[in-house]
Design a protein around this nucleic acid. Structure first.
Length: 423
RNA sequence: GGAGAGUUGGCAGAGUGGUCGAUUGCGGCAGUCUUGAAAACUGUUGUCUGUUACAGGACCUGGGGUUCGAAUCCCUAACUCUCCGCCA
């Protein structure tokens, strides 16, 4: 959520920045400002009414104390009208407040000035590419066939137990998953991150804090009996650790990492290109989250990019980095880099990481602040990135490393797996 | 799941209808003393909103109610603790 104060004081800048997503937002900002003005007026009316009532109540208290009952009774009569007014003022203010909130939450984050203009994924800009795309042997298979051939994952079994998109990993398929999780966690720990094991279900407040609610309600599994949501990413619980928290400036930056399964309904997303591991309802991911001083957040974003790059290079996978354009960026993000590995047998790029700076957009919802040098509370910046999401990494490894004798396990994973070939 | 107790400022902990936004202690910050530090002493120390500024308003877990007036009474939700039951 954008800070109201920012919209008030720098509405032109906000409009300019949001125009990269869609020009319609200028109108919404004007709407916000109009409601805000009305709301403040209503509030000040309500408050002066309240002030009057408070003063009389105080006087009554004094009169009662000094035993002057009759006069006190007289004053009581006076308050009747104030009370009545108070009720209607309050109702009006509440209504305006709600109206303001409802509009305000429809505004996405303002893109960073470097974000490319554009509406679709085609307009994202490739800012970096690394690695050779391997030449595969005759009769090379896509990962879903390899998975069957080597009996690594059973999708049908998952369908039986749960439903489509809930795979069952078996044997070396399960072991390489566990190996990747440990490898990614160890790498993040070595880079200075603290490991967290958060809850996998969150309440509505947490969903709101990181921006899943109300914007993306349909994407989360909702356990309605207890009104809890299955996390779509570890970002949600790990960032919400800092909801309603005032940090010390010297605590920043805070660097956390967590492995969790992620649950996504992917409503409406099913269709082409979702075979095998390309899109799942449950998948594993190691996520890095940072709580940062606003002055440092972009330097820290660069650091996160370097970290993710190093993971992909250690896994020896060809990859590229996209600077997402305004129209393709997530609702809460100010700047996002997507990492994609090249899946040779499918002949397409697969997104394996999304690394973003949210600036103060989440922090404003979370009310996560730090006390700055002037002793004032200031919103932090939040960042996060996948490091990494497992299924598409596995898909790329399987496809790119296939040989007639089996699939070569990347060297860095061998100590974690305990085997160097899948055959 | 059953029964009971509780939730107050960074922490601990008073306050049971009328200058209570809240006694006090600890912690934090500043000062005195000291070569420096500790101790001692003194002062200071919540958040949000609002105004050019002053004023004003809100917040004692959340929501609702009673009252001229609520931290204090009532209802409700969440959470915590204790006992019993169940259980990896």
């Amino acid at each position: 959520m954008l800070a109201l104060q920012y919209l008030r004081e720098q509405s032109d800048e906000a409009k300019e920045r949001l125009s990269k997503r869609n020009p319609k937002y200028a109108e919404i900002i004007d709407q916000v400002l109009a409601i805000d003005e009305e709301n403040r007026k209503a509030k000040s009316e309500m408050e002066s009414n309240q002030s009057e009532a408070n003063a009389i109540a105080k006087k009554i208290g004094e009169l009662m104390k000094s035993g002057n009952k009759a006069e006190a009774e007289g004053l009581k009569m006076q308050t009747a009208k104030l009370k009545e007014n108070g009720k209607s003022f309050e109702e009006r203010s509440k209504q305006l407040e709600q109206e303001l909130f409802d509009v305000l939450v429809t505004l996405p984050n303002t893109p960073h000035e470097s974000v490319p203009v554009g509406q679709t994924a085609e307009e994202n800009i490739t800012v970096f590419q690394h690695g050779e795309i391997p030449v595969l042997p005759e009769g090379a298979l896509p990962h879903w066939d390899l998975i069957k051939k080597y009996d690594l994952i059973d999708f049908e079994l998952g369908s039986k137990i749960t439903g489509a998109g809930f795979p069952v990993y078996k044997g070396k398929g399960a072991r390489i998953q566990r190996a990747m999780i440990n490898f990614f966690l160890d790498q993040a720990i070595a880079a200075g991150f603290t490991e967290i094991q958060p809850p996998l279900l969150v309440n509505a407040d947490s969903g709101f804090g990181t921006g899943q609610l109300p914007d993306k309600e349909g994407q989360m599994y909702h356990a309605t009996v207890d009104d809890l949501y299955l996390i779509p990413t570890a970002e949600v619980p790990i960032t919400n650790i800092y909801r309603d928290v005032i940090l010390k400036e010297e605590d920043l930056p805070i660097k956390n990492v967590g492995y969790t399964p992620c649950f996504r309904r992917e409503a409406g997303a099913w269709g082409a290109h979702v075979r095998g591991l390309n899109r799942l309802h449950q998948f594993d991911k190691v996520e890095i989250v940072q709580i940062a001083h606003p002055d440092q957040s972009y330097a820290l974003l660069d650091e996160m990019v370097i970290h993710v790059k190093s993971l992909l290079e250690k896994l020896e996978l060809p990859y590229r980095i996209l600077h997402l354009c305004g129209g393709d960026m997530g609702f809460t993000s100010a700047l996002t880099y997507d990492f994609e590995t090249y899946s040779t047998a499918q002949g397409r790029w697969l997104e394996v990481s999304s690394t973003s700076n949210f600036e103060s957009f989440q922090a404003n919802r979370l009310k996560c602040r730090f006390k700055n040098k002037d002793g004032k509370n200031q919103l932090v910046h939040t960042l996060n990135g996948s490091a990494l999401a497992l299924p598409r990494i596995l898909a790329t490894i399987l496809e790119n490393n296939q040989t007639p004798g089996g699939i070569k396990v990347p060297k860095v994973l061998v100590p974690y797996c305990g085997f160097d070939m899948i055959n």
